[in-house]
C-alpha cells in the first residue's frame, strides 16, 4: 500500500465503490462543494449520480429564492440566494432543514446558473416541485419562463402565484412543461381563461377561482380537484354531481373539495341528488379526514355504473365558519 499522508485523506486512492459509499453518506450541499473542488471531482460526482439522483429537487422563485433537495426520511438541504453580503456562506439550521445562504447581486442569474450546474451534475429525472411567485421578479418573468421551458424534464408539482392576470404566461408554461401531476393556480385569471389540464395531471387546486364556471369545472380532468374559494352556485354544484352520477364527466375523479361553502349549499345539493341507502355488502375505501376536520353531515350517491361516492359537509375545528363540501369516490 502506498504511503498515505497523516494530514489529509486521499479519497481518490480508494476503490471506486468505497468512494461512492463515502458520497452516498454526504448531503447534497457537501456533494456539490466536493464537485466544485476541481474538474476531476466534478467528473467523478457526475459518474456517481449517473444512474439518477434520489434526492428530490425543488425550486422556489419567491421571497427567499432557493434551490432545495429533499432527502428521505424527510429533511431539506437548501441554497438560498441573498442580496445581503454579510449573509454569504452562513448556514442556517432548523429541525428538519439546513440552509446555506449564497450572496448574489443578481439573484435570478445566480439561481439559474446554480440550477443548471446542479441539474448537469446530479442527473435529476425530473423537478419535484416548482413554486413561481410571479410578482417577485415581474420584469424578468419572460426570462424565468424561458428557463422553465428550457428545462425539458417533467415537473411533478407546479405552483403559480400572482396578483395579476398571468393567463398567457401560465398557458405558455403548461403548453411546454411535461409531466405535471400536481398543479396549484393562485392568480386572478379573467373569465375567458381556459385551463387545458395536462394529461398527466392528478391534482388540481385553484385559488382565486372566479373564472371557474360549471362548464370549465366539467372539463377538469384531474383525479383530485380542490377549489378553496368557489364562485360556483349551489345549482352548479348539483349539476356537477348529477353529471358524475350519469357518467357524463369525471370518470377518473377520486375526490373534489369545494371550500368555504354555506350550510345551505349542502342542503340544496342533498335535496337535488338521489340518496342511496348504503349497501353493507359493498367494500368501500376508507377515507380518513385530517385531525382538524370533522364531518357534520354526509350521504351516499351511486354512479350509473355502480361506483359509490360519499358527499360530506365538513367543518374546520379551528375555524368553525370554514365549511367544506367534499365528495370522495369509492
Amino acid at each position: 500500500m502506498a504511503n498515505v499522508s497523516k494530514m489529509g485523506f486521499p479519497i481518490f486512492r480508494l476503490p471506486i465503490l468505497a468512494i461512492f459509499n463515502v458520497f452516498s453518506m454526504m448531503n447534497p450541499l457537501e456533494m456539490i462543494n466536493f464537485s466544485m473542488s476541481s474538474s476531476k471531482c466534478k467528473r467523478i460526482v457526475k459518474q456517481f449520480f449517473c444512474p439518477g439522483c434520489k434526492f428530490e429537487l425543488q425550486l422556489h422563485i419567491m421571497d427567499g429564492t432557493s434551490i432545495s433537495f429533499k432527502g428521505t426520511p424527510t429533511f431539506w438541504w437548501e441554497y438560498e440566494l441573498t442580496l445581503e453580503k454579510n449573509e454569504d456562506n452562513i448556514i442556517k439550521y432548523d429541525a428538519d432543514s439546513e440552509k446555506l445562504m449564497k450572496y448574489s447581486t443578481n439573484i435570478l442569474e445566480s439561481f439559474f446558473n446554480l440550477f443548471k450546474y446542479i441539474d448537469d451534475l446530479m442527473s435529476f429525472k425530473n423537478l419535484g416541485f416548482l413554486l413561481f411567485e410571479m410578482n417577485k421578479f415581474p420584469l424578468q418573468n419572460d426570462l424565468i419562463i424561458q428557463e422553465i421551458k428550457n428545462f425539458k424534464k417533467p415537473i411533478e408539482w407546479f405552483e403559480v402565484f400572482s396578483e395579476e392576470d398571468v393567463e398567457n404566461d401560465v398557458t405558455d408554461i403548461l403548453n411546454h412543461v411535461k409531466g405535471i401531476k400536481h398543479l396549484n393556480l393562485s392568480a386572478p385569471f379573467s373569465e375567458n381563461f381556459e385551463l387545458i389540464c395536462p394529461p398527466s395531471l392528478s391534482y388540481l387546486s385553484i385559488s382565486n377561482s372566479k373564472w371557474v364556471n360549471l362548464k370549465k369545472l366539467l372539463e377538469f380532468s384531474s383525479t383530485e380537484i380542490r377549489i378553496p374559494k368557489s364562485e360556483l352556485t349551489d345549482m352548479d354544484l348539483c349539476a356537477f354531481f348529477q353529471s358524475w352520477i350519469a357518467s357524463e364527466s369525471h370518470s377518473n375523479l377520486e375526490k373534489i373539495e369545494i371550500h368555504t361553502v354555506n350550510p345551505e349549499t349542502f342542503v340544496t345539493v342533498s335535496q337535488n341528488l338521489p340518496h342511496e341507502e348504503f349497501d353493507n355488502s359493498v367494500v368501500r375505501k376508507v377515507h380518513s379526514l385530517p385531525e382538524w376536520q370533522i364531518v357534520l353531515e354526509s350521504f351516499s350517491i351511486k354512479r350509473n355504473d355502480g361506483t359509490w361516492a360519499t358527499i360530506y359537509l365538513t367543518q374546520h375545528t379551528m375555524h368553525p365558519d370554514c365549511l367544506t363540501l367534499e365528495m370522495t369516490v369509492g
Binding site: F9, P10, I11, F12
Partner: peptide, 22 residues
C-alpha cells in the same frame, strides 16, 4: 471519511481529501 466534508468549502475540501486543483 464522509464526516470530514461537513461544513467545508471547496478549497477546504481540497486540503481535507488531498484533491489536486485543476
Amino acid at each position: 471519511v464522509a464526516n470530514m466534508a461537513q461544513g467545508k468549502t471547496p478549497a477546504q475540501l481540497r486540503r481535507v481529501y488531498l484533491l489536486p486543483s485543476d
